[in-house]
């Protein structure tokens, strides 16, 4: 396991969270501590151990392809911060 080499700016950017200088300083130290603590997992011999994704895995959980009533446009847009022409408005996305 790598050491706690957390590149906070990069990770916060991936997470799309703007951090204040104050937060950066605090998180760097707090998360450094947490990562050092987490590093103890290096001690564990996990060779040949299967990962657990689900405690009680089953397979083929699905539904038949039968449409069900959804949300009305009003309900769909009820919590929207900004709406125009029954669509959600965001500042123009540049590709």
């Amino acid at each position: 396991m790598p050491g706690p080499d957390l590149k906070l700016d990069h990770v916060a950017s991936l997470a799309r969270i703007a951090l204040t200088a104050d937060e950066k300083a605090r998180f760097a130290s707090q998360l450094g501590e947490v990562l050092s603590y987490i590093a103890q997992l290096n001690e564990v011999d996990v060779s040949g151990v299967e990962p657990t994704a689900h405690a009680f895995p089953v397979v083929n959980v699905w539904a038949a392809d039968v449409p069900q009533p959804g949300l009305s446009v009003e309900d769909a847009l009820r919590n929207a911060p900004q709406v125009r022409d029954n669509m959600f408005v965001v500042p123009r996305v540049v590709e």
């Binding site: 392809d65 449409p67 069900q68 959804g70 949300l71 446009v73 847009l77």
Partner: peptide, 27 residues
Amino acid sequence: KTRSKMFTRAATGYGEPANTLTDPVVL
């Protein structure tokens, strides 16, 4: 070509009025 969406049962379609083919999962 399915009648409902991949991970929820809201109907699929083309050319419908905006945001009429949604449900809580789609949004």
